[in-house]
């Protein structure tokens, strides 16, 4: 039974989200980033994001890097919290890779961050764990199997094109797994939970999105190439 207070909270959250969704949809018709200058961030194609679209499950309040901590728990021997400074002190790894959205567009950037092995040596996942469920600032959840996370091309990124990740691109931390569709690259990560079985992420629960998310042979409309349609062979797009 939902109490009156809870009902009002849900109603308020729903109303706020609806307001931002409608407003951002309106803003798309202009070239502005609707969220610029506000405390919130959400799905947008405006402003600088015309070159690299961003999607969010829900409009969310921007994360304060000073108070943010990455919580790692679940099936690990040493549950740990990392501050942003601690995350940034891990061995640096960078790569240029393309993010391919299941909506068909793609965009390329240079990403910098660390490989998951550098935190796993600290938290020590149980052998029984098969993957990680990511909990994100916009209430989005996504699961990635450990084999994909330990792939040499997978990165936990905190920088993009030489700068700290923008809020839109997932500040303070996001996954870059360039051989998976964008919905398998969660942004604004708050918590990593090691689990012992495949978990359907947010989109896989409600839409026609596979839990695997490997990029299939098909078509691409790269934003950096004028959205000109091209064929792709599946897996990571290297050009």
């Amino acid at each position: 039974m939902i109490k009156r207070r809870q009902f009002l909270q849900y109603l308020s959250a729903f109303g706020t989200n609806l307001f931002f969704q409608i407003s951002s949809a309106w803003a798309k018709s202009s070239d502005k980033d609707f969220f610029e200058g506000s405390d919130y961030i959400g799905k947008t194609r405006g402003g600088d994001f015309q070159k690299f679209y961003v999607n969010f499950w829900k409009t969310m309040r921007r994360i304060d890097g000073n108070s943010w901590q990455l919580e790692i728990g679940g099936l690990v021997k040493n549950p740990t919290r990392f501050s942003l400074a601690e995350v940034r002190s891990l061995p640096l790894k960078s790569q240029i890779s393309r993010l391919k959205c299941v909506e068909c567009w793609s965009a390329k950037a240079e990403w910098a961050g660390f490989h998951i092995s550098d935190i796993e040596s600290i938290v020590q996942p149980d052998k029984s764990s098969t993957g990680v469920l990511f909990h994100c600032g916009d209430n989005y959840q996504e699961y990635l199997e450990r084999t994909s996370l330990s792939h040499p091309r997978t990165l936990l990124a905190y920088a993009m094109d030489g700068n700290s990740l923008s809020d839109g691109h997932g500040f303070p931390l996001r996954v870059i797994a360039p051989f998976k569709y964008g919905y398998k690259n969660p942004k604004a990560i708050l918590k990593m939970e090691y689990v012992d079985g495949t978990v359907s992420g947010t989109w896989s629960k409600i839409g026609p999105y596979s839990t695997d998310g490997t990029i299939l042979p098909g078509y691409d409309h790269p934003l950096d190439r004028g959205k000109v349609k091209r064929r792709i062979a599946g897996g990571e797009i290297f050009d």
Partner: peptide, 11 residues
């Protein structure tokens, strides 16, 4: 070289 199979276009 691989042949055959399906082409995915926006699901």
């Amino acid at each position: 070289v691989a042949r055959g199979g399906l082409w995915n276009f926006h699901l």
